[in-house]
Design a protein around this nucleic acid. Structure first.
Lengths: 360, 360
DNA sequence: GGTGGCCGTGGTAACGTCAACATGCCCCGG
DNA sequence: CCGGGGCATGTTGACGTTACCACGGCCACC
């Protein structure tokens, strides 16, 4: 750690010495340009450019000389100048509805890391509703991002992205883009359907007469897919699906709906569309004196880190957020580089904990 | 929604018509430059620039004409060109250690919104340790951000920011910057000390013989401050402080440490350094058969949204993340515009819920 | 032995913007 | 009536980079 820091400081000082006319103010460091490197290395700016961009048409000797000069001067390419010239900013945007849901936060982190690893900067914009989404795209276009990843529950809002935005787009958890124009944007998502099915089948396997569903908002595609999987599992087992109750992903909404479910004696198993709502449900069940899992079994979705410490520890369907982020970035960069939009589905996995332990 | 969308589409079409040579490929839209606006309005580019930047030295008539032309063409200033010329990117960076803690996510959202509101783009970089922090600053400098906000628990890592980075900086939850050079960066933080003190005094007021502390990591400044407040409250009441146990902010660590605490019969009140660790503690207590709050009272810190749905609902100290984000952005932009680094402290507030209800 | 082609390199211009200076005009004071 | 000063606007060049074309030298092939 200490060596690293020293290394950085000395590089900085070199930089300051190299370009600084003024003394005292660290703000006055003149930046090292390609021309500086070129003259030190005794080559033209063009050759420096070739070295920087890894062109093969450079003599190894020359390349070494240029690299030495860059090192000595602490040269860093000027992104704005490059962007002006090439039209590529090497920046991608992320549009997110909210960071209040833990899943979105996890995705953001995964996307940030994946982008950084590929040398792309990530700029984040929030957009709660459809109108804000349009505005968010405007802002991103102004900022000159090369493309954007959309993390927005509202299907209706995502539809708006069918409109031409002038940006390459990858949408996470989106219905297939429709219309005759075929795919307008890439899609990356978890296998909500299978995950929900597995969760529901697991509950059925425990011997419950049926499985209730505490779902996500009506306009969410992910919520619809999870509901679909739940319904399919019930149907497959020849059971009737009870009416769906819906929350808005928050624990508070899970509690509010949970109070209603807890009152019904015929509720003995609930598949909840995300972990945070399950947390609220668990509280409602506890308040109603209904033991989990003895009287009511509960399974969530997401497997956020906290779920293992709920009371009782929550069975849930794990989403691989890191993989999702990775694929979203990869798909977007592919599209930016001229590839066709594609659709990726990442598998999910049922994690059984105490909230749905076998009835003893 | 529909009108908005239509408006956007027609603007896009205008844009396409205005500059497009090629047909068919929506990627080929040529961007509208200042020169296009200038020639349409019959003025020089310089005058357009003056209008865009709100210079007062423009005749109202001319200004109107230029604005009409901009509107008609759908002109958007080119940020990269502007950045190249002025050296300002109007972008700020956010360095965050992890988004796994809900507090950090909340801060990120608040910062994103505050930055957007001021016309700044926000780029996010993660940096888990001190070495990564240095690298993160490098990357941000490459990307040409005007300044950065640092959200990183590790005090040691934050210290590294004492090294010149060539960036204006605002650090959230940092010890005062030290040394003869006075303040190198701005600081924004919650009043951890008072919050912790209030929480501890509340527990003492409930009649507990003493209050235990489940603290954050040793290298965290926020954790140290909270511990300080806890200690001060005990001292003020003439009570002896029990040994501190520490977690790493996660629920899992709270559970691991909580198991130890739950075994001790002399533990009847615990002040936990954040809500997520408190969740783990609650589970440990439940597993040990110790009722909350009847046998053990618990108070957390942060007031994340889920805390109200813990079992039992968690008493906690609320941080005003939105205010923190707002102030951090404000302080940073102030510094970018040449202001002196400043320190802001945002008040915290005790929220009493069932986990520390008065003993019946 | 001539010629074509490739290889390494350099020169020039342009991306869109804004700062600095220049220009022409009108109004006011002496 | 003339000169100076402000005001609105225009002209020029530069920020740092890369695309395009040009050039000389060398090898290979016929």
């Amino acid at each position: 750690m200490t060596p690293d820091r020293d290394a950085d400081m000395s590089r900085f000082e070199r930089l300051e010495r190299a370009g600084g006319e003024r003394i005292g103010s660290s703000r006055a460091v003149k930046r090292v340009s390609m021309a500086d490197v070129a003259s030190l290395a005794g080559v033209s700016g063009q050759t420096v450019s070739r070295v920087v961009n890894g062109s093969p048409r450079v003599d190894p000797t020359t390349r070494a000389r240029v690299e030495a000069a860059m090192d000595q001067l602490g040269y860093r390419p000027h992104r704005a100048a490059r962007a002006l010239r090439t039209g590529r900013t090497h920046t991608i945007g992320l549009v997110v509805s909210t960071l209040a849901t833990v899943g979105n936060s996890r995705m953001l982190q995964a996307v940030a890391d994946a982008a950084a690893q590929r040398g792309y900067a990530l700029t984040v914009v929030t957009a709660a509703d459809a109108a804000a989404l349009i505005e968010a795209f405007d802002r991103l276009r102004d900022q000159g991002v090369d493309g954007a990843i959309v993390l927005n529950e509202a299907t209706a809002a995502v539809r708006a992205t069918d409109a031409p935005t002038g940006l390459d787009l990858v949408v996470v958890d989106s219905p297939p883009s429709e219309g005759p124009g075929a795919a307008r944007f890439g899609i990356v998502q978890s296998d909500h359907d299978s995950g929900a099915r597995a969760a529901t089948e697991h509950l059925i396997g425990l011997g419950h007469a049926t499985v209730w569903h505490l779902g996500g908002p009506e306009d969410s595609y992910a919520a619809a897919e999870r509901e679909r999987g739940w319904r399919a599992a019930l149907e497959g087992a020849g059971l009737v699906a009870p009416p769906v109750v819906r929350g808005d992903w928050t624990a508070a909404s899970g509690h509010a709906e949970g109070v209603v479910l807890a009152e019904r004696p015929d509720v003995s198993a609930v598949f909840v569309a995300n972990d945070q709502m399950a947390l609220g449900l668990l509280r409602a069940l506890a308040a109603a004196g209904r033991a989990v899992p003895a009287e009511v079994a509960v399974v969530g979705f997401d497997d956020i880190a906290d779920a293992a410490d709920y009371l009782p520890p929550l069975s849930t369907v794990r989403q691989d957020f890191d993989e999702l982020g990775e694929r979203a970035v990869e798909a977007l960069i592919g599209a930016i580089d001229g590839g066709a939009p594609r659709t990726d589905v990442v598998p999910t996995r049922l994690i059984v904990r105490e909230s749905s332990a076998a009835r003893g």
